Simulated scan of single mutants.
Amino acid sequence: MGRPVIRARPPAGPQPGPGGTPLVALLERQWMPLVRLAALLVGDADAAPDVVQDCYEAVWRLQPRVSDPEHFVAYLRKAVLNRSRSRLRRVRTVNRFLAQARPEDPVPPADRALLAAERHRELLDRVDKLPARQREVIVLRYYLELSEAETAETIGVSVGTVKSSAHRAIATLRRTLEEPHDQ
């Protein structure tokens, strides 16, 4: 397939079609298919008409004589493809710039430390309310970071007892922390 013939001068004696000229009629017929193509290429239905409009403006400036409509439609598709690629490159460049401009670690909310301290205090209150063995297991396993075997040896129970006590304690803590505070 060869390239469409596009001449820089206006066609001699344009034949009026439904849109005024053969070029206008062709552009009107191809508008929606090209917009759908652009939407799929750029992934943005709102930007797609702009991409196609840019192509149409470039074609209109040339005022080509449409001698082979099929080749001309192929030319328009290629133009939409190229404009879509350009748009995606610009968007990637902008996103890269914005990513560099954003701080790596956003400033945490001012009350974050206060909320964490409150949550920590609430957790410790709930741990204090656990039965003695469960409380001992939780403190040794998760606060002192002892292994199950070390915890079992320290308390003087089996590893299985440490596992089951830890499981029951964690289940109790989850359940009580999910309850409303006024109980």
Rank of each mutant, 00 (worst) to 15 (best):
V80T: 10
R36N: 09
D46I: 01
D44L: 08
R96A: 15
L88I: 03
R29N: 06
R61S: 10
E122T: 11
Q30R: 11
S84R: 04
R102Y: 01
N95L: 13
Q63A: 15
D44F: 12
R92G: 00
A117G: 07
W60L: 15
R83N: 13
L76M: 13
R83A: 11
F97T: 05
E118L: 05
L27M: 14
Y56K: 04
R83P: 03
T93V: 07
E70P: 02
H71I: 03
E28R: 09
L34E: 06
C55Y: 03
L130T: 11
M32E: 09
V127I: 15
V66A: 00
D111L: 08
K78V: 14
A99W: 05
L88C: 10
R87W: 15
T93L: 11
L124T: 10
R121N: 06
P103N: 05
V91Q: 12
L88D: 00
A113G: 05
A116R: 15
L62T: 13
A113E: 10
W60P: 00
V127D: 01
A48Q: 01
W60D: 00
V91E: 15
N82D: 08
Y56A: 08
P69L: 07
V42Y: 03
K129I: 03
A101R: 15
L114K: 06
V94E: 10
R77W: 06
R90L: 06
R126T: 07
V51Y: 03
R87N: 02
H120T: 14
L76D: 02
L124K: 07
A39K: 00
L88V: 05
A99G: 10
A113D: 14
L115P: 03
A110K: 11
D54C: 01
D68R: 09
A48R: 02
S84Y: 04
P109F: 09
M32Q: 15
L40Y: 07
P131G: 06
D44R: 08
R92M: 05
F72D: 01
V66W: 00
D105K: 07
L114F: 12
R61Q: 13
A116L: 14
L26C: 08
V52W: 07
V73W: 06
L115R: 15
P49N: 14
L34K: 07
A38E: 09
R96C: 04
A39T: 02
